[in-house]
Design a protein around this nucleic acid. Structure first.
Lengths: 343, 343
DNA sequence: CTGTGTTTCGCAATCGGTTACTTTCATTAA
DNA sequence: TTAATGAAAGTAACCGATTGCGAAACACAG
């Protein structure tokens, strides 16, 4: 096998009879290199199959050109879309990504933060785990002036820039839509209200009820984990409510799909007896019967925005500290599961 | 903000009055350091909040402790499971990952390979894109003796180690199951037969038919892209076949779910009129009505095995070149969509 | 007390780029 | 003609960890 040593800027310098520094500068389009020299060097680099040694560069420049990504779960289509968006921008700008996930565990999240800090990433893009209580494990980043961007699960009042949707409005729109369809006893299946995404959606839900003079009832609120088993539990809880529920707003499509199934198995019709609206606009909502109304949560776009933002900051184009929160647009997607009136 | 410079082995050495080399060796448990000295150094490192500089180390050792991952698509639950499995092992062994995706594009795949090569990853784990025709873009890795492991989409005869399931057997089992259920006109919706996974499953399908004296018919084979739109097309193609089809083996659960929907909308019953079996065991199969029979494709496990294999090779524990192919177990999961007989 | 082995460390070169500071020339103003 | 100005390129000191080579220190047998 061809174990020839890699060629370096010194090799190029030797071949052309110039100094390594000239080669280095030419390679990165530094201004103080004559265009003739630059051209020669670029050509030679190409001919010799030169590949830059990132470590040498990182070591010297004290930067890594790497972003740390922290997510709470990899196996989620929303998260995957976000990653896809981040990767899209990172690839363009030649940044690497190190992706970690916390499995919804605050301790593991802290360990990941520590690890990424040691790896000296230039910045962080993170969505908090389910049971994260504070941002202490990001302290080192803040203190060192390293940019941190949160998305999805965030502390709205905390440090760092956030890229989120207007969860309040999303919850409000979903609920208003159900009310317009004639529903009055609207249940809400969601996860812990201590997480911003869920508490805000709940605020929107409550506000919509209030504005339509529908009294809020505590027993219409079901808080559980949104997992598959939890979905079955929640659905049964909903079915047991009396007087009967005529609509459910569920903050997760996968969960909603399972709930729909339980409801149908119980002999009720969707949307005639119970209208359903989910959240995320996952693929799964397109194959349920009827198809699932939902809120589109544009992960790809969120990932792009977050990545672009942090990279521009690192490139000195913008200052991230000037931006506290970026709101991405999200839309109500109406399909069969909530459409009682023909329009 | 606290921009104190990082502390290095030199700082530790100064503080303790030993040489940097001693510190370096102590930190990596080199044998030739007295245990008293080692203990002192470890303690000092901890006190001072020392964090190793990977670049300096990489530069010197000419290794990166990073694996390159190449997938054809990020937004797939199978792929995500694999990534999860890889991450699981990599985290344990302190390897970083750089994840790239080709969007099913051979040219982008080649560019990614080139990029990872320049980034000097220690090894590669890859699933080929849809239209990859050869392994030329991996040549540099092979030539340099860098380990490459393929999974899922592979060239079974090509260079490199492969981690796959027995796709032939999976196709055979799925089809045999349908035959046992009394089906005789079994259609097969799949993707390009030039990809190993699909051609092997097709071989299994054909073999099962042959063994049961069911003649193979060309028009029962539908090759398309498995996307959502393709699924609708394929389903309609199936419905147009005469004499009517009584079962379909589809090599992708998402596609199968959509096909089921089209079939039901056409007024046919599943499984009574048409039995369905998918592939992958995605979440989506659990919320269709009826639930989808499928082949479990254990992504997490595949990821773990691939990662473990390549890392052990890098650590010198095993030699990857001794292993050509690793077959992971996959199982038939029977649910409602294919169960015509009560057992 | 000398010689042979071990164990434990230190010296110093090295990995490949980057960049502050100089030097070298050529052009231009005085 | 000469000094000033600026563009182009070179010098060399880093960045922090690793490691081959060899020296010092100590143990122990003869």
């Amino acid at each position: 096998m061809g174990l020839e040593k890699d060629i370096t800027i010194y090799d190029i310098a030797d071949k052309l009879g110039v100094s390594p520094s000239t080669v280095s500068r030419a390679l990165k389009n530094h201004t103080s290199i004559g265009s003739a020299t630059r051209k020669k060097i670029l050509a030679a680099a190409h001919d010799l199959g030169y590949r830059a040694n990132t470590f040498a560069s990182n070591l010297r420049r004290q930067r890594t050109n790497t972003l740390g990504i922290m997510v709470h779960e990899l196996r989620s289509s929303f998260i995957t879309s976000v990653l896809s968006g981040i990767e899209n921008i990172a690839a363009e700008t030649n940044y690497d990504l190190i992706i970690t996930h916390s499995s919804e565990n605050a301790a593991k999240e802290a360990a990941n933060a520590e690890n990424l800090f040691h790896k000296r990433v230039d910045g962080l893009i993170a969505s908090l785990s389910f049971d994260t209580k504070d941002l202490n494990h990001f302290r080192k980043f803040f203190d060192k002036g390293l940019p941190v961007i949160f998305f999805d699960r965030v502390f709205e009042q905390g440090e760092g820039t956030k890229v989120i949707i207007d969860n309040y409005r999303a919850g409000y729109n979903a609920t208003s839509h159900l009310i317009e369809q004639g529903c009055r006893r609207i249940a809400h299946i969601t996860s812990s209200l201590s997480r911003n995404v869920y508490s805000e959606r709940f605020r929107g839900y409550s506000a919509a009820l209030r504005e339509n003079n529908i009294p809020y009832e505590d027993n219409l609120l079901v808080v559980d984990s949104l997992s598959e088993e939890a979905a079955v539990r929640s659905a049964n809880a909903i079915l047991a409510i009396s007087p009967a529920v005529d609509a459910v707003f569920i903050t997760n499509d996968m969960c909603a799909a399972v709930v729909m199934q339980v409801i149908k198995e119980a002999g009720l019709r969707i949307p005639e007896d119970i209208a359903i609206i989910g959240f995320n606009n996952d693929m799964i909502g397109k194959v349920t019967n009827p198809k699932l109304s939902t809120i589109d949560y544009p992960g790809f776009q969120i990932g792009q925005v977050a990545a672009r933002q942090i990279i521009h900051h690192l490139q000195g184009i913008t200052d991230i500290n000037m931006t506290n929160t970026i709101i991405i647009n999200s839309e109500l997607v109406i399909r069969g599961s909530s459409l009682k009136k023909q329009t």
